[in-house]
Design a protein around this nucleic acid. Structure first.
Lengths: 238, 238
DNA sequence: CGTAGCATTGATTCTCTTCAAGAGGTGTGG
DNA sequence: CCACACCTCTTGAAGAGAATCAATGCTACG
């Protein structure tokens, strides 16, 4: 991982309102900045940490995107998440000394590194930081429950629909288009994440295109009819 | 929820080594005890908290058992977990002011209530408590990823096998038999948790019985051949 | 003892996976 | 700059696994 530093101070980072709640005071942000080691730049395919590595830090995505993968004893894998700027990876590594998953950049990606030890110490002094960490972990657990529901109780199409809509919402939060989705992962990875065969995913996308709800052009997917997509998702649930 | 208090001090509780790591000093346990409001006793079917309630506390199970359920907008549900003594519920409620799920006692159940506010304050003073909270949340996230893998990539039988073995391990941790499982939930709830139809679950259990691996007597399930069950799980994965 | 909730078992249906082949796109080396 | 190879994605056909529908058996509780 190479070292550059256009801005290692949170307050200068365009994403600080995404990483931290507005209630975070400038002083707190300043202290937090001080423990951010560096800005790491990874190129596509490089890993931030690998399953089994000793866990030293959590990371906030500045630019680009990543996927996290868990490999089972039998060699099968599970994509546990895709991450966009302003999102945090490595929360599953706080428990043990070693990493539970591998994080891989799916394109050129910039990261903020927050060493676990320093962060723990700082959150002893900053109640708002501790509280924020509890919150993002708690939110992650909630989101995981939602995903379990999706994986175990819904149809293949429903899973694709809810992924597209959630990706759209995440792009919006970053002030990107809610319609023009730029997926950064392969069909195989996305299918694995959604718990289906990649052929099924491909077919579903095409069906949605046939029904004039989306346009598929490789990893560029346009949501032509957001209300229609939402409606289709509701119908499935009945 | 009625109020009794045979022992509201952690150090006197037989489970304190399960709730907290051995590194926890007596002094820390003492301080922690001081914020435990009371011991709550619930009878079967009663709820600790309900989805949408304001989130006030997390809870450690003292005796009995619970299930947590998330209800979707469309009315479908997801059992997000079953909890035994020494385990903690409510971690998904730290993020927002309201509860994301409903916790229901599946039998007569005793609980320790740890108010969120008081706990946050105390963990500002006790680094080991903060660290422990980070750890149990991080562990929960890891376990969730494992479950996603199970739900999305494995067969119905495999899911039943891994549930039985994990329940066995959890009984062991409480110094109960690793063979004689006492399930506290209905087939419907278990099937929902495992992401399958209850008929499928029933059939799978019977097949395992036919193959002389287990004995099924309602909710009393005996693991007759632990190595055999493990082997069967491995084979599935190939 | 009777009823209601819970669990088993069987028959059928259907969604999704798997297997297979081919098309599109991209990057590298000649 | 083109050709080739490789990776990714699409599309089709067949089959398996699990869901659903339906009926019956069991158990526990009032």
């Amino acid at each position: 991982m190479s070292l550059t530093s256009p801005s290692s101070r949170c307050i200068e980072c365009g994403l600080h309102k995404v990483c931290f709640p507005p209630s975070f005071e400038a002083r707190a942000l300043e202290q937090l900045s001080s423990l951010i080691n560096s800005q790491n730049l990874l190129s596509k395919g490089e890993s931030v940490y690998r399953q089994g590595d000793s866990a030293r830090a959590i990371y906030a995505v500045q630019s680009g995107s990543l996927k996290t993968v868990m490999t089972q004893a039998d060699g099968s894998t599970q994509i546990t998440g895709f991450y966009l700027p302003g999102e945090v990876i490595g929360l599953d590594n706080l428990a043990q000394s070693h990493c539970a998953s591998t994080a891989i950049a799916t394109e050129k990606t910039g990261l903020c590194e927050l060493p676990i030890n320093a962060m723990s110490r700082l959150s002893q002094q900053l109640p708002e930081l501790q509280s924020h960490l509890f919150q993002i972990m708690s939110n992650e657990i909630r989101a995981d429950y939602q995903r379990m529901h999706m994986l175990s109780q819904t149809s293949a199409e429903e899973r694709v629909l809810s992924f597209l809509l959630s990706w759209s919402a995440r792009q919006s939060r970053r002030r990107l288009s809610a319609q023009a989705l730029r997926l950064t992962m392969t069909r195989e990875d996305l299918a694995n994440y959604l718990g289906q065969a990649l052929e099924t995913l491909s077919r579903t996308l095409h069906k949605l295109q046939d029904d004039n709800l989306i346009t598929v052009a490789g990893r560029q997917i346009t949501l032509k009819d957001l209300p229609g997509l939402n409606a289709r998702l509701q119908v499935q649930c009945s």
